[in-house]
Structure formats: C-alpha cells, structure tokens
Computed example of a mutant assay.
Amino acid sequence: MIVRLIAACCFFVIANGSVQAEEPRKAQIFAGAFFPFILEQDNEGTPRGLSVDILERISALTGDPIEVKVYPWARAQQLLKQGTVNGLVGPYRSAERDGYMTYSNTHFYEDRMVLLQRKDKPVPWDGDFRSMSSYSILTINGWAYGPEFDAARPLLRTEKVATAAQALLMLRNDQVDLVALNERNALYEIRKEAALEEIEIKEPEFRTVVGYFAFPRENTDHAFQKRFNDALDHLAATGEINQLSARYGLSYIGRVTN
C-alpha cells in the first residue's frame, strides 16, 4: 500500500515553516507485523492502524512516499537488518536491536508487559521472575521483553511460539503455565476468542515499554531519517499523535527515555 504519493514537485514543510521544492522521491518501504490497533490489514489486505495513520501524516509533511508491508515479526526485523527495507514499524528497544537499528526520536505508543494464566490454575506472582523457575512460560518469537526478563531467562523454563494467538491457544489447552505478552495483544486475543472466563492477566505488569519506528543502522538514508524525525516530533508536539491514538483507544504520554 502506498501511504501517500506526491507526483511532480514535492514540498517539505516542517516546524520552522520553510518551503523547499524538490524532485519526486522514491518510496520508502516500512516493514511491520500484525499488532492490534498498531498495524492491521483489512479484508483486501490493505494496511490499517495507528502506525499507518501516522505514516500518512509524515508523508504529507515530508513529501516522501511511504509503502507499508506486513510480514511475520521476526522476518520484518531481518529485512531491516539486511537493509532490504527502509524502516520498521513498532519495535521496542533492546540491547540486541541496538546493534543493527536506530530509532525514531519519538515513540508513538506504549504497552504494559504482563503474564497471562488460566483462572482455574493460578500461579503465584509478585513481580519477581526469580520465583518463577518451576513454571513454564511461553514467549513470542522476535519479541523484546526487557532487561529484567532477559536477565532471568537462564532460571526460567521458556518456550517460543510464532504468534500471540498460538500462545493463547496453548494456554487454554493447558500446555503451558503462563504466557508473556503485552496487555494490548493479550486483551485483543482474549476478547477475540471469547476467553474472558478462562484467562486472566496477572498483576503487576513486569515492565512498561514504548514502541518506535526504526531504521537500519547500516546503509540508511540519513536525509530521509532526519525529515522523518522532524515530522514525527512535530506530530508529537502538536498533539496529533495523542489525537490519532485516541481513535484506537490507546494512550500516549509523549517522549520518554526507554
């Protein structure tokens, strides 16, 4: 899907109010995966969601056509690492990702990272993973869970599956004790499968994270990245990200260090 295509002359208008005529630019390809409300597809396969709304506004401000493609999450990250795509939709920061990607100046959504359990088989949880070594925990391939979880991994019985839907199914079938997800995905899957009577989200959350747009660290288009960051910062400063987030029932608190 081409988010916005500007033919003939393009005009880049940003916070300083300057206007500069430019030649038409090539499309910038952003890869992402299905994230409820952040990046979805309609019945025709057209990308939709908060990220697409924001990319449309950035395209309008910078004159850069932007194309969004949806892949499995691990594949989308690999494409960015290889430099096959120009951007990535929605990653949290992690030490591993820092090695091959850079992030937008401003994040555009927030998540609470939580554990899910069966209501008929509750698991004690006080927020400390060091007490969870006797329980099996499902994680999603390619997800970043934060330094606390990563530090505890050697003590834990963890397994990986490809999607949140697969993880919920295994939990409902009593094949695992817990599932580690973000609350947004968890609520989406629980409601979709009408599993509110079976599955619950445990408190407290084990981390609050924010999601960014990202760019390849190697062979990146620095001029585009600057235009993109200026436009995204403008949307944050004017409250447009807040307004767009509200359409999807999502919260946004502005720039933070993560």
Results as ranks from 00 to 15, higher is better:
residue 1 M to G: 11
residue 1 M to Q: 07
residue 2 I to T: 12
residue 2 I to R: 04
residue 2 I to D: 11
residue 2 I to C: 03
residue 2 I to P: 05
residue 3 V to E: 08
residue 4 R to T: 05
residue 7 A to F: 01
residue 7 A to P: 15
residue 9 C to R: 05
residue 14 I to G: 05
residue 14 I to S: 09
residue 20 Q to G: 00
residue 20 Q to R: 14
residue 21 A to W: 01
residue 22 E to I: 01
residue 30 F to K: 07
residue 30 F to R: 03
residue 30 F to Y: 15
residue 33 A to W: 03
residue 35 F to S: 08
residue 36 P to Q: 00
residue 37 F to I: 01
residue 38 I to P: 02
residue 40 E to G: 05
residue 43 N to M: 06
residue 43 N to K: 14
residue 45 G to F: 11
residue 49 G to H: 09
residue 49 G to Y: 06
residue 54 I to A: 04
residue 55 L to G: 08
residue 57 R to W: 03
residue 58 I to F: 03
residue 60 A to L: 13
residue 61 L to G: 00
residue 62 T to Q: 08
residue 64 D to E: 06
residue 65 P to R: 05
residue 66 I to T: 03
residue 70 V to N: 07
residue 73 W to L: 09
residue 74 A to F: 14
residue 79 L to Y: 11
residue 82 Q to L: 14
residue 82 Q to R: 15
residue 86 N to V: 01
residue 87 G to I: 04
residue 88 L to S: 00
residue 90 G to S: 09
residue 91 P to I: 10
residue 92 Y to F: 15
residue 92 Y to W: 07
residue 92 Y to D: 05
residue 93 R to C: 00
residue 93 R to H: 13
residue 94 S to G: 13
residue 95 A to E: 14
residue 96 E to M: 04
residue 96 E to P: 00
residue 97 R to S: 12
residue 97 R to L: 13
residue 99 G to W: 07
residue 99 G to V: 01
residue 101 M to C: 14
residue 102 T to M: 15
residue 105 N to R: 13
residue 106 T to G: 01
residue 106 T to I: 06
residue 107 H to P: 12
residue 110 E to F: 06
residue 111 D to I: 04
residue 111 D to M: 00
residue 111 D to Y: 01
residue 113 M to C: 04
residue 113 M to E: 09
residue 114 V to L: 04
residue 114 V to K: 06
residue 119 K to L: 07
residue 122 P to W: 08
residue 123 V to S: 10
residue 124 P to C: 06
residue 125 W to A: 10
residue 127 G to Y: 02
residue 127 G to A: 03
residue 128 D to L: 08
residue 134 S to F: 00
residue 135 Y to A: 03
residue 135 Y to N: 02
residue 137 I to T: 14
residue 139 T to Q: 14
residue 139 T to S: 12
residue 143 W to A: 11
residue 144 A to D: 14
residue 152 A to F: 02
residue 155 L to C: 00
residue 159 E to D: 11
residue 162 A to L: 14
residue 163 T to W: 08
residue 164 A to C: 02
residue 165 A to I: 01
residue 166 Q to R: 06
residue 167 A to K: 03
residue 168 L to C: 06
residue 169 L to T: 13
residue 171 L to R: 07
residue 179 V to S: 04
residue 179 V to N: 04
residue 181 L to M: 12
residue 181 L to H: 13
residue 182 N to V: 05
residue 188 Y to M: 02
residue 188 Y to D: 10
residue 189 E to P: 00
residue 191 R to P: 00
residue 201 I to Q: 05
residue 205 E to I: 02
residue 206 F to P: 04
residue 207 R to M: 10
residue 207 R to F: 11
residue 207 R to A: 14
residue 208 T to P: 00
residue 209 V to F: 03
residue 212 Y to N: 05
residue 212 Y to K: 09
residue 212 Y to A: 10
residue 213 F to V: 07
residue 215 F to W: 12
residue 216 P to R: 09
residue 218 E to C: 01
residue 222 H to Q: 10
residue 224 F to N: 02
residue 224 F to W: 12
residue 224 F to C: 07
residue 224 F to Y: 13
residue 230 D to K: 08
residue 231 A to C: 01
residue 233 D to M: 10
residue 234 H to E: 03
residue 237 A to L: 12
residue 238 T to C: 11
residue 244 L to M: 13
residue 245 S to K: 05
residue 245 S to Y: 07
residue 247 R to H: 11
residue 248 Y to E: 01
residue 250 L to G: 10
residue 254 G to D: 01
residue 254 G to P: 04
